[in-house]
Design a protein around this nucleic acid. Structure first.
Lengths: 255, 255
DNA sequence: CCAAAAGTGTTTCGTATACACCCATGT
DNA sequence: ACATGGGTGTATACGAAACACTTTTGG
């Protein structure tokens, strides 16, 4: 772990682009609530603790593609690769890191004279049960916070989360995003709860099931839940190939 | 005009952000075809002419907001203010301006050492009949080109136009964008032709009219076309206030 | 047998689609 | 009178919404 931290700090003092950063709003679903991954501003080396929270994100490397930077940050903090990632906004207010305390911190940390940082924001969807602790997630004390009670974050990160949630809600209606948040095998009621959680509304159970069961890319398995003390539900999987080929024919539809 | 050019060049050699630019895909509709505004790479001072075409766009000023930069560029080339503007993408391939000829040109023009420029792309919608010639539009020979036959442009500007058109098509289905492209007073058949042109499909005339006439924010006037050698059509206007208040109640719908 | 969640059908209403002819104007 | 685009109505089919009870399992 010590090596990882050194590597991390090395990259920071290395070849960074002083104008552009990437921030990731990482969503996860624990079965009840939508959550967001937040980290401490400073690694806890045992000594002091700032207590300040932020989104996972960083200045990009000079010649780095933005999505590569986002993927890099995500796998550093979740241990996962091939995460769903979607760019949803640019935050370019010249005042956005104007709290002098925050700005000083960024300059110390990056070892650069910072004038103005435009950040490109991504939301990402992870299967919360698959994410693992990493050296960095431990060092920065990465934790999941319920979307309905986000603490105060540094910079404009609270605003970025709000906009990311808006984008997620919008895009959920036209893209099969839920399956990125659910376990591989899921029940229709889990799926419904997830839609209800994100959209913030109630759905009629019978109508929901009818609609979903019409979709050829949601495939029922001959397999049921077990270990539950009620009638076990049938499990389903999302067939991405079927979805992609229907999409090519423009015959998809969601919800 | 000479003064304008000097001012323009001054801004260039001044306080530019060497990492970030803005490019605008400016759409217009002439009644038959969707058009895009393109300019020459170099101002024609009477001497040489490069013949190279590009989108209106530029490096941003150091502390400038991106949308402000886009608005500035648009009014420089169309003489219009309050133009509809929508950010639709970021183009960040480190190789995107790698044609050494193009890169040299950018360095000469900006008087900066350029390493890599990430550009933020906007599409904008203008009433083609209201746009006027400006000193810069003359100097850079701004012209409307049919979307169906865009010439080869510098950098990755052809790609940017393609992505901009995709975004316009997508967003046309959920936002009342057509009215930004049509004259203030329009006929339902003009509106239909515009939808057909952008979406690239045919629509049933009777069904289209029924659907539109249900929308309370498209208001028929007691006024008709004149000077046409056929039955003159009734004129309509788009009532943005009505639209906005319906949108607040989540009771809008388009097409 | 009780608790807890899974699973199931029918009716009603509104919107989408398909389709062909007459009308008003300028030349 | 004719050419040109403007304007209109009906029938059918499909999906959306509303709504309440039975079933299966574990404890």
């Amino acid at each position: 772990m010590f090596l990882y931290l050194i590597e991390h700090v090395n990259r920071m003092t290395a070849n960074l682009n002083p104008c552009l950063s990437v921030d990731c709003v990482v969503f996860g679903f624990d079965g009840n609530e939508l959550k967001v991954l937040l980290i401490n501003r400073d690694p806890s080396t045992g000594c002091e603790q700032s207590g300040k929270l932020k989104l996972p994100g960083d200045l990009i490397i000079r010649s780095e593609m933005l999505t590569i930077a986002a993927q890099r940050i995500l796998s550093e903090f979740t241990g996962l690769h091939d995460i769903y990632l979607k760019q949803f906004g640019i935050f370019d207010d010249p005042q956005r890191l104007n709290s002098r305390n925050d700005l000083e911190w960024l300059e110390n940390r990056s070892d650069l004279k910072i004038e103005r940082v435009v950040t490109v924001a991504y939301y990402s969807l992870v299967k919360i049960d698959k994410s693992v602790q990493t050296d960095l997630s431990i060092a920065y004390n990465a934790c999941w916070y319920s979307c309905s009670s986000i603490p105060l974050l540094i910079f404009d990160h609270n605003n970025i989360i709000d906009k990311g949630l808006d984008a997620l809600r919008r895009e959920l209606l036209t893209e099969p995003l839920c399956f990125e948040l659910l376990p591989e095998k899921f029940t229709l009621n889990q799926l419904q709860r997830l839609y209800e959680t994100i959209l913030g509304c109630e759905l009629d159970n019978r109508n929901f099931r009818k609609k979903i069961q019409r979709l050829p890319y949601i495939v029922p398995l001959y397999e049921r839940q077990n270990g539950v003390n009620h009638k076990p539900a049938q499990l389903h999987v999302f067939d991405n190939n079927k979805y992609a080929s229907l999409k090519k024919d423009h015959t998809v539809f969601i919800l």
